[in-house]
Amino acid sequence: MEAAAHGTTTISPQLAARAERGDLLTLGMEEEYLLVDAVEPRGVETVEAVLDEVPEELRPSVQHEYLRSQIEVASPPQLELAGLYAAMSRLRTGVADAAERAGSRLVAAGAGPAAGPNSRLVDNPRYHRMREQFGDLAPGQGLCGTHVHVSIPDPETGVRVLNHLRPWLPVLQAAAANSPLFGGHDTGYASWRSMMWERWPTVGPTPYLHSHEHYLTLLADLRASGAMLDEGMLYWYARLSANYPTVELRMGDVTPTLDDAILLAALARALVTTLLNEVRSGAEAPDVPHPLLMAAHWRAAKDGLEGLGLDMASREPRPAWRLLRQLVAYVRPELERYGDLELTTVLLDRLRSRGTGAARQRALLAKGTPVAGVVDWLARTTRGET
């Protein structure tokens, strides 16, 4: 629930110069994970022991999350997709190793798949204030998402990009769906995390914003209302980062494979860059009605990519995969310019053949795999073993 430190990175002078000119946008990623027992599939409160086992060189990029059965990592900002892949691979492997040394396992799932006791809060004054103000809005073992940061030239431009992003986020949410199970049963949703997450008062689609001043006024009004304690509790599906010069896309579950996470990051940067070009050309963002966006995000949570999505142009249901293909076609020129098209195509084909995390979990259940076996698969997949 708090942004982790972005850290530092080493990039070539040529790429750094292009980024400085605004030719290329940097990107970074945060992932939240569950910690489960080494033998049973239930969540365990081992975050302190895991942090003690994290290698020193990774420690600046790893931190607590809201509950003691969760942990979060954040990559340094990157210009190259391969660099992001390498950074996140080191973090996933390093934290998974640390979890095993602490007697638990690292699981990339949007919500706790297996039944078990509710986890206690991390002993953090801010989290205690949140519990006092908002009560038990985070039951279970934790809700875990993926956040992608893409750099922007200034906040005013960032606000205009947020307006243009609104119609595209449901299909990215569908692609990340990875929480069909909760408490040991199939919820009927591809992303049950999305449904539980929406109980917080500031979760939802980004409203249409008239200016950066309007954005700041809304934040002040929300704080005054008591709906959030600070800017870090602005949980819109896309927002300006409170800590970095980025827009932050935060509508998706954490994905079981790093492949799926990197695909999401590549599409996010290409989309933000494409929309930045529209902003600079003077194009107005479509003012999609808020109830329609809510319906589209509900549809994404319900079906993932394996069912229907809501086409924001026609306002009619369409196969979700068709909508994702449309997004890829829309941002293809920027994927090519960044040199990301080849890898994105490979990752997209893998997602198509394997299905989302939600689909893969359900495929295991359909074969008779028990929930404990699904959690074992998630732990091995998080490490990159499947």
Rank of each mutant, 00 (worst) to 15 (best):
G373V: 11
C144L: 00
A329Q: 15
V148N: 12
A379C: 13
R68Q: 01
G7Y: 12
M29P: 09
D52Q: 12
L351T: 02
V148T: 14
A138I: 14
W298C: 05
G368I: 09
T255I: 05
L229E: 12
G43T: 00
L35D: 00
S12A: 13
Y215I: 03
L365R: 01
A98Y: 03
G145C: 02
D376P: 02
Y33D: 01
H185C: 09
A74W: 14
S211Q: 03
L364Q: 14
P113R: 11
P77L: 15
V371C: 13
L327Y: 03
E316N: 13
R120H: 01
R21M: 05
K302V: 08
P167E: 07
L271T: 11
S211L: 01
A329C: 12
E342N: 03
V161W: 02
K302N: 04
V50W: 01
T344Y: 02
T356F: 06
Y330V: 11
G252R: 11
L292S: 08
L341E: 15
T257G: 12
G304D: 09
A109Y: 01
E32N: 00
L327E: 03
L327K: 03
G83N: 08
E2V: 14
D311C: 11
E306M: 01
R18K: 05
Q133V: 06
G183L: 13
G384R: 10
M195D: 11
A313Y: 15
R322F: 00
P205H: 05
M294H: 13
R199A: 09
P55W: 05
P205W: 02
M233R: 13
A111V: 13
Y66K: 06
L229G: 09
Y85Q: 10
P125A: 03
L25V: 12
A295S: 15
R101D: 11
S104R: 14
P205F: 09
E100R: 15
T274Q: 14
T10R: 10
E156F: 07
R269Y: 13
T381A: 12
A295E: 15
L165H: 07
P153Q: 04
G307L: 04
A96S: 11
L165N: 06
L209P: 07
A87Q: 08
Q361W: 14
R239K: 08
P153R: 04
D340G: 08
R199G: 05
D311K: 09
A379W: 14
E31L: 10
A313M: 15
G357H: 00
T8G: 11
Y33E: 00
A49T: 05
H6R: 09
